[in-house]
Write a protein that binds this DNA or RNA. Structure first.
Lengths: 223, 223
DNA sequence: AAAAAATAATTAAACGTTTGATTAAATTAA
DNA sequence: TTAATTTAATCAAACGTTTAATTATTTTTT
């Protein structure tokens, strides 16, 4: 035997399962994917699910627990950003869009999970992971208000809902987006073109929404 | 015999199944609900699903096909509204919020279906139902632009995405909303208080987003 | 109007299949 | 060898669906 299989291979098996789980659960939903289908797609024996994760649920949970922290952690780096409150908010929009668009099937899954009245444990895990990010955004809005740049009477929470809602609406429902924008190619949803267009729209809308009237001429042009 | 049982009884069985299907599929997702569970919840024999709808899929399809048209038909009434372009857009926001909030589990289901790569037939049905509404909104925005009230450089499609996205984000993921707003009661998501707050936020944001600078003082106060 | 026939609605039980999970044996790595 | 990993075979339970029998209602016949 020339090429001995190393232990690296076994890590691969585990990782293969996690990766395939993220993909298939994201596309079809947890219950719609059978362990056989998942194992086959991952080129792995069914029993490996039980071996590494105990159960199908265990695989699901592990996948979320391992991927989610990585997915949200990045936001913290924003705080080191310099510049005005608006610069920071602009950076948050950029960062979120990058993260979500490069990880869309996982994010689909995450937010579908929140819409279901199943598996409350997952909901708690997810929510406690993302609520920290809300606080960061709120801090920036307050910062802008204190400097007099932003309006005082902003509904901060619903503003956050609008930013995320806009992104999720477009990214989590590709067929909706394709139809709305009159595109032909399914892949447009993952394209740089949409990313740029979405960034511009969000920043334009948020600028108009956040800035006080008297400061409106000071607003920097978007992109 | 005083009260003869009429055929009305059998329509009840069918209707019971449709109603329960909308509720359970909305809460848990199609695959997560078994025919036994559904039949039990509807107080109906399992075989009735096959009898009236052919299959579980058939029940799902029938439920969407019968409910969805009613759900979109109401929207058409907007066109009869009088007043400025803004008045009409304001009316659209009001109407959508009323519709979606009073029918939230069905709308959850509709839009979860769009996020899944299952059952393309459903997606087509849903999308062709809602795309007419986009055109109505676009017409109003153009109307406002032609009268000089609205900005010219608005990304119309993504503006639509923002309106719907904001609503769906809050209504389709109740636990997210509860957490974001720091509420205790799960029922807040269906409350009049949220509806009013959401209307105000959406109108404020859209006003700032749509109106030209020189007309901003003309904008009527929201609510 | 009453009896008979036909149709529609409902039931409990069982169908074959697929599900997630487990086993015990085989293979590989250390 | 010993422990870790992978395999094919197997399990009971749950799945969606179908069945054959029964009850309820409507229609037809007399």
């Amino acid at each position: 035997m020339f090429v001995k299989k190393k232990k690296i291979e076994t890590v691969d098996t585990r990782e293969q399962l996690l990766e395939t789980a993220a993909k298939l659960f994201g596309e079809k939903g947890f219950e719609a994917v059978s362990t056989r289908e998942l194992a086959k797609e991952a080129n792995v024996n069914i029993a490996m699910i039980a071996y590494y994760f105990g159960s199908k649920e265990g695989l699901f949970k592990a996948m979320i627990e391992e991927r989610f922290p990585k997915s949200v952690a990045h936001l913290r780096n924003i705080q080191k950003h310099e510049g005005s409150a608006w610069d920071k908010i602009s950076a948050v929009i950029d960062l979120y869009l990058e993260r979500i668009m490069s990880n869309s099937s996982f994010h689909k899954l995450i937010f579908r999970e929140l819409s279901l009245e199943q598996r409350p444990e997952h909901r708690d895990l997810i929510l406690s992971g993302i609520e920290k990010n809300w606080e960061v955004i709120k801090t920036y809005i307050r910062e802008g208000q204190e400097s007099g740049d932003f309006k005082e009477d902003i509904d901060m929470e619903l503003t956050i809902a609008s930013v995320f809602g806009t992104i999720f609406q477009l990214i989590n429902m590709p067929c909706w987006t394709i139809r709305l924008l009159g595109e032909k190619d399914e892949k447009f949803v993952k394209s740089e073109a949409l990313k740029i267009r979405l960034k511009k729209h969000l920043k334009d809308m948020m600028k108009a929404h956040l800035f006080s009237k008297q400061y409106s001429e000071k607003i920097p042009p978007s992109v």
